[in-house]
Amino acid sequence: MYVRVDPADATPIYEQIARQIKFAVASGALQPGELTPSVREMARQLAVNPNTVARAYRELQDEGILTAQRGVGLTVAKDAPERCRKERERWVYERLKQVVDEALRAQITPRQLERMLRDLLRSLPQQENTP
């Protein structure tokens, strides 16, 4: 599992870790029942304090994304993918809302903004599962 943290980001590192794990679950990179790296291993990979990883993992457990398996470690919960997809969609929606608000404050019309978004979407590589 690939997780990256950005110390320059204003988002706390434990939140960056938790969000990236959620996105990995949402995308299918982490499957239900799959083990996450141990706290020590993840901390070593990211060069962060183990308490930071432990906090991210506790948050994910509290949200029902990860489940503790006695003697094994933390695994992805069965219903986690759907929960993570919904949260990822909500997070992206909020970011888009911020961009739209900023564009409107800059006096960009909704029609101009729609054209920009359409152009941007057209410029992206096409994916096989695009609806």
Rank of each mutant, 00 (worst) to 15 (best):
residue 1 M to A: 11
residue 4 R to W: 04
residue 10 A to E: 13
residue 11 T to C: 11
residue 11 T to S: 07
residue 14 Y to N: 04
residue 15 E to Q: 11
residue 17 I to E: 02
residue 19 R to E: 14
residue 21 I to A: 01
residue 21 I to K: 01
residue 21 I to G: 11
residue 23 F to R: 09
residue 27 S to W: 03
residue 27 S to E: 05
residue 28 G to Q: 03
residue 29 A to I: 06
residue 29 A to C: 05
residue 31 Q to E: 12
residue 31 Q to K: 15
residue 34 E to K: 08
residue 34 E to A: 15
residue 34 E to G: 10
residue 35 L to Y: 03
residue 36 T to C: 11
residue 37 P to C: 00
residue 39 V to P: 07
residue 40 R to L: 13
residue 41 E to A: 14
residue 42 M to R: 11
residue 42 M to V: 02
residue 46 L to S: 02
residue 47 A to R: 13
residue 48 V to F: 00
residue 49 N to G: 09
residue 53 V to H: 07
residue 54 A to G: 07
residue 55 R to A: 15
residue 56 A to P: 09
residue 57 Y to T: 07
residue 58 R to V: 00
residue 58 R to M: 14
residue 61 Q to W: 05
residue 61 Q to Y: 04
residue 62 D to F: 04
residue 65 I to Y: 11
residue 65 I to D: 04
residue 65 I to H: 10
residue 69 Q to K: 09
residue 70 R to I: 09
residue 71 G to N: 01
residue 72 V to N: 06
residue 72 V to Q: 10
residue 75 T to S: 02
residue 77 A to K: 00
residue 81 P to E: 00
residue 82 E to L: 15
residue 85 R to C: 06
residue 86 K to A: 14
residue 98 Q to I: 05
residue 98 Q to T: 05
residue 103 A to S: 03
residue 104 L to F: 15
residue 108 I to N: 02
residue 108 I to Y: 01
residue 108 I to Q: 09
residue 110 P to V: 02
residue 110 P to N: 02
residue 110 P to L: 08
residue 111 R to G: 05
residue 113 L to S: 00
residue 113 L to A: 02
residue 114 E to H: 10
residue 118 R to V: 14
residue 120 L to P: 00
residue 124 L to I: 10
residue 125 P to I: 01
residue 128 E to V: 12
residue 128 E to M: 03
residue 129 N to C: 04
residue 129 N to P: 06
